[in-house]
């Protein structure tokens, strides 16, 4: 009996979308618009307010427009940079540097983390040195990498790789170590060997933790990219930020900064999307 009741209440939850269609059309559309506007205000109200305040204080002269140019000036600098192709080269080289480094960190960090998380003694042997490396700032090591690899692309990619490797590696190890042993035991009673247990239990259970590492790493990759491009580069978005400031092209400087922020948002959005698709089971509203 109690189960029938659970049945219907869950089914009602599933049918929520359909139930809305029953109300009359016009009030439904109006209330949907109101809900949408309410959502936008609640979610992005502060950002929009901040941007409006920037535009206003710069045009009215509350702040020095030479240091904080109005947003329309920044946007037009961004547009002309993109339209002339000058900024496109910078974007391409920056994406290439951070992309290669990130891909290498993923390719090494995830398999190594899966292995280390499973084999207790390997993890115990490697953990102290990993902690030491992780706590050493990648930026502090950048001069060492330059000495080792020269001032070219290799040292730039390597410093980003170095900084992005650890979040991925450590999250993956953590994910594997936290796999519920009761699930592993259950799988074993159904005749699952070590490989099947890994493939069907350990790996899927670690995916959410791995994504935490990936998102942390993506942020770190952009951070290190800019730092690396500010030292000894003649191309790249980070270089543009510094260069525009030297030449007092302040709108261009802000345009490059804005570009970086957008890149970060895009990278994060991509990862969130991938996570949603891979971990549909853990989403509250899947």
């Amino acid at each position: 009996m109690s189960y029938e009741h659970v049945n219907t209440s869950l089914a009602a939850g599933f049918g929520l979308g359909r139930a809305e269609g029953h109300s009359t059309a016009i009030p439904a559309i109006a209330s949907r618009w109101r809900a949408l506007i309410g959502f936008i205000v609640a979610r992005y109200g502060l950002v929009l307010g901040f941007l409006a305040f920037w535009q206003l204080s710069s045009t009215v002269g509350w702040v020095n427009p030479a240091v904080f140019p109005p947003l329309d000036v920044i946007l037009s600098a961004l547009w002309s940079g993109l339209a002339s192709g000058a900024l496109l080269d910078d974007i391409a080289i920056s994406l290439q540097r951070s992309g290669i480094a990130f891909a290498a960190a993923v390719a090494i960090g995830i398999p190594l983390g899966l292995f280390m998380g499973q084999v207790r003694f390997v993890e115990q042997a490697l953990d102290p040195i990993l902690q030491l490396f992780r706590q050493t700032s990648a930026l502090a090591l950048y001069p060492v990498f330059i000495l080792m690899l020269g001032l070219g692309e290799t040292s730039k990619v390597f410093v980003i790789f170095w900084a992005t490797l650890f979040p991925i590696l450590l999250s993956t190890i953590g994910g594997v170590k936290e796999v519920d042993n009761k699930l592993v035991e259950m799988a074993r009673t159904y005749g699952a060997g070590p490989l099947t247990v890994f493939r069907r239990v350990v790996l899927p259970a670690s995916v959410p933790a791995i994504f935490v590492g990936l998102r942390l790493s993506a942020t770190t990759a952009l951070l290190l990219l800019i730092a690396a491009e500010m030292i000894g580069a003649n191309k790249g978005i980070g270089f543009q930020v510094m260069n525009a400031q030297y030449n007092f092209q302040i709108p261009l400087m802000f345009a490059a900064i804005l570009l970086l922020a957008l890149l970060g948002l895009a990278a994060n959005a991509l990862l969130v999307l991938a996570q949603r698709n891979l971990c549909r089971w853990s989403q509250p509203n899947a």
Binding site: L183, G191, S282
Partner: peptide
């Protein structure tokens, strides 16, 4: 352990990333 025996534990021990059908089919697949 052996496949001639099946265990039902106090906790359901379902794999959260599998649907009900795939959970029920888990033992068959392994």
């Amino acid at each position: 352990v052996g496949t001639d025996r099946a265990v039902i534990f106090q906790e359901p021990r379902l794999l959260p990333w599998l649907t009900v059908l795939d959970n029920v089919g888990f033992g068959l697949e392994t």
